[in-house]
Design a protein around this nucleic acid. Structure first.
Lengths: 196, 196, 196, 196
DNA sequence: AGCTAAACGAGACGGTACGTCGCGTCTTAAT
DNA sequence: ATTAAGACGCGACGTACCGTCTCGTTTAGCT
């Protein structure tokens, strides 16, 4: 059995060239022009090499985005929850701006077509969500949030505005808008009564 | 010059067949199989006819979705804001379930590729948003929400969770989850202090 | 059932452009460069159009050769069998010269790889062989050949030298060589004793 | 400079495995499946090894065929020219049967695409042709053929029928057909008058 | 009611990208 | 240094849809 190639023989040069090219094509030519052939040509790599190591162009892009966004996994803790959340959300917004040429936006869009990519994207999100929850738990211990605050609700409400805007191309929220939404969400989490 | 066809001569039969076929293909075969050719074949219509009346397959789908979701424009007013919002959001969730074959989800996904479709989608959303804002203003007059509540924040926070889930295929929220998020948002809107 | 396209809708322009391009590419670039893509590009035609109407590149070439060699079907009858056979064989030799860029040689070579093409080639040869046999029968009636002369042997011996040379790239026979072989064959047919 | 490898270091095991595999793949899977990769896999040899020692897959096949047909170089001399020629031709026919999987037929077909292989094939044929001519010269000395018989004509006419059949897939001649053609050719060579 | 111009079905067309195959070159590790 | 293994850049393969374009054939609106 030899269905999957031997990773030991993999060319690091080709791998990096492909990931770079994927980001470059997306940034320069937009999502629509982002084809396997364009990536291959820009990377100076054969299509075969791409297909050997990635199942789809979405997977290439996901890898590329993941490589270029490792910082997002860790959540700062300045002691000011609102400030930390704003920093994090503004980083995400920056990655999604401009929406038409954002590799991350492209991955998300592609995931709507490819269930397999959606799965991979979700897997890749998991550590970030854990970082998020950890930060929130620290806030709970610090007394910034009540102990009973629902972290699932928090995740949806903190991140929801960004993806609501993304879905309908309403334009990404600016820093002020982020701030007001963060404040609302923190207020909600503090006000919520689990005994309702 | 006769670049645009005469709408008076338009075949209603063909129009309905196309819209039905678009929904049917999306539901039966999923987003990936949703091509103009598949719609044309299923509708028993020539591709030319589709291209004569719609600029793209996304536009067909948007029309089809709009036709099948006219009820969403108007917001109920039972006097209970939380209940009304839950009803509305549950309707949206129902339209997006299952995500893989939801025509609305497909339109949103397609809009990520086609800026023109994104524009059309936004235009088509406007009356719904106005309905939403109207309902919220009634809530303000009824004293359910403070007069200074930010309707933009409200829109993002009420709808955000759905599209956050959609983007990453986290699974649509169930009724209970909707309820808890709606409650949080209403609490946030009540708690927020504009003088901050 | 609609596996084969409707010939009534076929574009004559495209058909001729393809056949011309096939011959041109073969003549200009040689057999090795003769690809479907090269033909399509030269013809200003999409690959799909070629695949719609021909099963393989060999079939295209066979059609092109057949169109350009209709004259070979009919055998002259000047009353001089040797002269007529030489004329015919020299025509064939001309079609096979130079061997490296001869479309007919290419068809024959391709037929070695594609049994289906070999069949088509044989079918397309049949009327020529009938013309050959008819000419020989006239020679028999004219007393130029004995009545018992074996036409199968005649076919093999008249044409054999050309294809022997072709197979091993010995160089096509010139007119003098053709003449001597024709004379030998006629002598053989006259000398043969069926009662052996 | 070390462009050519050192033959002394050549692995005889690999060499034989490659030649065997070439014949085996040709016989088992036919000409179309006969690729360098298939040979390498079947031989348990790396592609690099093949490319180190042979310029092309045709060359491999030619070597393989030559190794397996050394007997054809020498012409028997039983004193009966017709019988000896029939024996020789029947041997060739046997090598070309069945045509679709005959390695020799494959070499000839391949030589139509690769001029370099055609040259090598011709070179490899030379000793056989010399054997042929020698046999014919003995026939001349024995009085079986006239002294002025044209050996070039003889070569074309004796071998021509086989390659005529091969080119058009008419089916190889059986022993009886070989016999009748040989008899005709001998008759022609005896009848020909060089003073014509 | 008949005429005529459009919209219609069908589907061929020139393209672009797809995902695959085999080529001939190359790199690596193990004899 | 040659070998087995196999990744690599390359280019052609045959396919799928795209959006455009004829074709006859309805069919709707005007005479």
């Amino acid at each position: 059995m030899a269905s999957t190639p031997d990773p030991a023989r993999r060319s690091e040069r080709a791998r990096l060239a492909v990931l770079d090219a994927a980001l470059a094509v997306c940034r320069d030519n937009g999502f629509a022009q982002l084809t396997i052939e364009a990536i291959a040509e820009r990377a100076g790599v054969s299509k075969k090499t791409i297909y050997r190591w990635w199942p789809s162009k979405g997977a290439v892009l996901l890898d590329a985005v993941a490589d270029s966004a490792t910082t997002l996994v860790t959540y700062e803790d300045t002691g000011d929850l609102a400030r930390d959340m704003c920093a994090q959300l503004n980083s995400v917004v920056a990655m999604l701006t401009p929406q038409e040429t954002s590799p991350l936006a492209a991955v998300i869009a592609e995931a709507q077509r490819e269930p397999a990519l959606a799965q991979a994207l979700r897997d890749q999100m998991r550590p970030r969500i854990e970082g998020f929850e950890e930060r929130l738990r620290r806030a709970q211990h610090a007394g910034d949030l009540p102990a009973h605050a629902d972290l699932g609700v928090a995740l949806d409400l903190f991140y929801g505005p960004i993806y609501h805007r993304l879905a309908f191309h309403f334009g990404m929220p600016d820093e002020e808008e982020i701030r007001s939404r963060v404040d609302h969400v923190i207020a909600a989490l503090r006000a919520a009564d689990p005994a309702r």
